[in-house]
């Protein structure tokens, strides 16, 4: 129960990526065979995303407050997600480990989203989570809203891990991804002084199927309209965000959740 005190004292300049405008975002839960067909068609029309190694493990750590204010807002259809993303070749069994962390802010509404993210060393991300001013130029827009959430006590509470296959047009106007092996984990509440990687908590659930996501800015190209229709016809369920699904499992609000 010893508190550790390691603090980042110098500010880092973060790699910054942001959506140009709100994007449409639809998610579909489909079988493996449907996903294969969809991704084959996608591969004929879009290049592999330059930023995503195929089937690398994405680990996303989501924050919320003790009163679950982010989750409750998301359930009402509009919320600011605050999350830390890490990428690995093989599945890590701890989160917030050494290396590059992407601090992501995502403003979700019913059908669209706006995302902004900053790549920084993990120690800077941890300082950010403690509301310490460790990152330069992180005091406007979504980041400023996220900062208020942290001051209200938001902390890492749950984690998703999955293998992602991502295709994206060169101008980023269309992005289609397939997430395999999606797993949801609990994460014990952290005390503010902890700076070491956090071991994953219990496995809450595993998705039996593949989650296909389509994101686009204004109009879909013709082939993608057909693909979207095919997905709608073959989906088992149109999905809420991974954050909402994870929180439902965490709080036992998922009904008959598959485990």
């Amino acid at each position: 129960m010893n508190a550790r005190n390691r603090r980042v004292t110098t500010k880092v300049v973060a790699a910054h990526e942001a959506d140009a405008e709100r994007r449409h975002e639809h998610r579909f839960q489909v079988s493996e065979s449907v996903a294969r067909l969809v991704m084959r068609t996608t591969a004929n029309n879009l290049p592999l995303s330059r930023d995503d190694r195929p089937y690398q493990w994405s680990t996303t750590t989501y924050c919320d407050t003790v009163a679950w204010s982010i989750y409750r807002s998301a359930q009402r259809g509009s919320a600011m997600q605050l999350r830390i993303r890490e990428y690995h070749r093989t599945r890590p069994r701890q989160v917030l480990g050494p290396g590059t962390a992407w601090i992501e802010f995502k403003d979700d509404e019913e059908d669209t989203s706006l995302k902004e993210r900053y790549g920084v060393p993990m120690e800077s991300a941890r300082s950010f989570l403690r509301s310490e001013p460790a990152i330069s130029d992180l005091n406007h827009g979504l980041a400023e809203r996220a900062g208020r959430l942290l001051k209200d006590g938001a902390r890492p509470v749950c984690v998703t891990q999955y293998n992602r296959l991502a295709y994206s047009s060169l101008d980023s106007s269309v992005r289609i991804t397939a997430d395999h092996n999606l797993m949801y984990f609990a994460l014990p509440w952290e005390t503010t002084d902890e700076d070491d990687p956090s071991p994953l908590g219990s496995l809450l659930a595993m998705e039996p199927d593949v989650i296909v996501e389509m994101k686009w800015y204004s109009d879909l190209p013709h082939w993608a309209v057909d693909l979207h229709q095919y997905l709608k016809e073959n989906t088992k369920e149109e999905r809420p965000s991974k954050f909402i699904v994870a929180m439902r499992h965490l709080l036992g609000e998922n009904g008959a959740a598959r485990k």
């Binding site: 003790v66 009163a67 679950w68 509470v157 749950c158 609990a186 994460l187 014990p188 509440w189 908590g201 219990s202 496995l203 809450l204 965490l250 709080l251 036992g252 609000e253 485990k259």
Partner: peptide, 23 residues
């Protein structure tokens, strides 16, 4: 477990600890 999950939702208990118990 269901009662404790209710306490988690009210912000009283650590969700991950209750999740480990539930598992």
């Amino acid at each position: 477990v269901r009662i404790l999950q209710g306490a988690v939702a009210r912000g009283e208990l650590d969700a991950a600890v209750v999740a480990a118990l539930a598992t």
